[in-house]
Amino acid sequence: MAWAIKEQVEKNWSEPGDFSGLSVAFLVKVDRQGNVLSVKMTRSSGNARLDESAENAIFKASPLPFPGEARFYEYLKEFNFVFKPES
């Protein structure tokens, strides 16, 4: 389901330009239904347009596709997104 989450966020990410070579990281907290509760930028790319568009993508992708089984929640309640655009 990591792939499903990845796909859902990529589908919601509208790259505002070519930012290949830069990367931005977020720590994301979600509830058991996959709803995004908080997004904290842990490392900026140095470009506000890339940072904001990536953060938008996470919000727009909410709720994230989550498995029903409770045992996965421990792994998934908090995780990192790294946006690393390729040209």
């Binding site: 790259e15 990281a25 490392r43 908090e78 995780f79 990192n80 997104f81 790294v82």
Partner: peptide, 23 residues
């Protein structure tokens, strides 16, 4: 663990967005 990310948590890397334009 890439720098600037929380240790111990799952990391998902996003490399490609949609090219459909900014909504």
């Amino acid at each position: 663990i890439p720098p600037g990310t929380a240790a111990g948590a799952l990391t998902i890397e996003i490399t490609q967005g949609e090219k459909s334009g900014i909504p």
